[in-house]
């Protein structure tokens, strides 16, 4: 008698499957990254390229752009699985759906959140952010973007069955992003002024733990609702 895979194996399997899918659709996944760079380029054009001004608002700009880029990429977490019936198969899996959701969201973060780390230093340089703030910028992106993916996944799961889900999605998700925005931007700002940033970083870590432990359950419940 054969038996089902261990939970860890199933997790890894689904993660690898999603990464493979993303690799085969890589043009689509490059879009949010381009969008991120593009939005940031707009600010100097709109506000004028005064170095002091840009350096002052750089943390805010980068994080607002990161939120918008995350919003744009969210739909792809469950969209194709919902359309082709794979989502039903995942919901009918012998494994706990919340863990499978965690695998899917992790894969999504690896292909949409992590790449921001690569372009962020470049953009920080272009906006004239002081060097000592750049390490903090990377740290906030590293801790903050998975929160965006985890929380966003709940919103997508609630709206994936709707025809006009996109507009509602932003209304559902952006207010929930506010705490991440506040603490991440403030951490970078403090670092730029040479102050201590550990309080903000610890808060972000706490948010990360909270979202990783709670959001998969809410997402799984929302997916069941959307699939019915």
């Amino acid at each position: 008698m054969s038996s089902r895979l261990s939970l860890l194996q199933a997790f890894v399997f689904l993660l690898r499957r999603d990464l493979l899918l993303a690799f085969r659709n890589r043009a689509e996944y490059a879009m949010p990254l381009l969008f991120f760079v593009l939005v940031i380029t707009l600010f100097p054009l709109a506000l004028g390229a005064l170095p002091e001004l840009l350096a002052r608002i750089a943390p805010g700009i980068i994080w607002v752009a990161a939120l918008l880029a995350a919003m744009l990429s969210l739909d792809s977490i469950f969209r194709s699985d919902f359309d082709d019936g794979s989502l039903e198969q995942i919901l009918l899996s012998a494994h706990p759906v919340a863990i499978l959701v965690l695998a899917k969201v992790s894969a999504h973060w690896l292909v949409t959140g992590l790449p921001l780390l690569i372009v962020a230093p470049l953009l920080a340089e272009m906006l004239g952010m002081p060097g000592q703030a750049q390490a903090t910028l990377l740290l906030t992106i590293l801790i903050g973007t998975p929160i965006l993916s985890m929380v966003g996944a709940i919103g997508v799961a609630l709206t994936v069955g709707l025809r006009k889900g996109g507009i509602i999605l932003s209304l559902l998700v952006l207010p929930l992003y506010v705490p991440v925005l506040i603490f991440a931007a403030s951490a970078i700002e403090n670092a730029a002024m040479g102050f201590e940033v550990s309080a903000q970083i610890y808060m972000l870590l706490a948010f990360l733990l909270l979202s990783v432990s709670l959001s998969p359950w809410a997402t799984a419940a929302a997916l069941r609702m959307s699939a019915s």
Binding site: V178, I182, A221, M225, S226
Partner: peptide
């Protein structure tokens, strides 16, 4: 759907408020 959303919201309200 809104039941799930309200629960997610109520967990987040104190976090948003103190942030």
């Amino acid at each position: 759907a809104v039941a799930i959303l309200a629960l997610v919201g109520v967990v987040n309200i104190p976090i948003i408020h103190y942030s």
